[in-house]
Design a protein around this nucleic acid. Sequence first.
DNA 1: CGTTAGCCCTGCTGGC
DNA 2: TGCCAGCAGGGCTAAC
Length: 274
Amino acid sequence: MPELPEVETICRQLAPYLSGKKIARVKVVDPLITAPEKARAFSRRVNGQTIESVSRRGKYLLLNLKSGDTLVFHLRMTGRLTQARLPIGKNYRQHLRLVLELSGGSALTFHDARRFGKAFVLSPDEVEIYWKKLGPEPLERSFNVRYLERVVGKRTRPIKSLLLDQSIVAGVGNIYADEALYRAGIHPERPAGEIDSAEAKRLAGAIKATLRRAIELQGSSIDTYRDARGGSGSFQNTFRVHRREGKPCPGCGGTVKKIKVGGRGTYFCPSCQK
DNA sequence: CGTTAGCCCTGCTGGC
DNA sequence: TGCCAGCAGGGCTAAC
């Protein structure tokens, strides 16, 4: 469930930690994490490489290698990237999936309880193709009212499903879709095409404001999320509706409801969101 | 093309 | 108290 704010937090921490360091050794503890690429092929492309910079695209964390290749991580539900020292301690090995041993005795570890997470390498050509499938970054200018009005078009799917679609906008997940829709006063099941321009304006603003605030608070630490230094975010303390079923809506005092939208647990206030 | 359902995984929750 | 079915969900693919 790490979404844009969580990956951004990790990215900002890892940038100074990893930049300029050399990957001295790769240990693929669980080959499922690099699948379908074989652990050996993965290691060959990463081993000995220098990390030039660290960046983010949507929910993907990117290590830009000197070879021109990009080492891509996706944390999915329970993935964790952590700054570590060598050797990796015994009680640190539960759910350990991948270790990048770095020059100078430091390391980057990848833990993942549910094994949904991914690590893979893309060539410059592949990167270009890959990012084309993703929508704009929600915090950039290109994501605005006009864009939102255009993509809702005459689509019939629920607006929340549209927001979760990474080809529409990159980085919004279940938490921030719920919170942004609440902030915009829009019901998550509203057919996207019914969103008018005033609502589109509110929604674009709500998405940006929600993500910006979440980044300031270093993300939401619910379930297993921790940042690259093992720390917690605090945006979860400001949730208006997400995971607050049965609790009072901070706006009207009514009761927050939980439904399923596109197979995802969805929280909203029936009286504030129309 | 647009949309939806099912699958991958395993720790945790809720019901009995 | 102990057990276990079922839930959680991001992104991909298949199917409609």
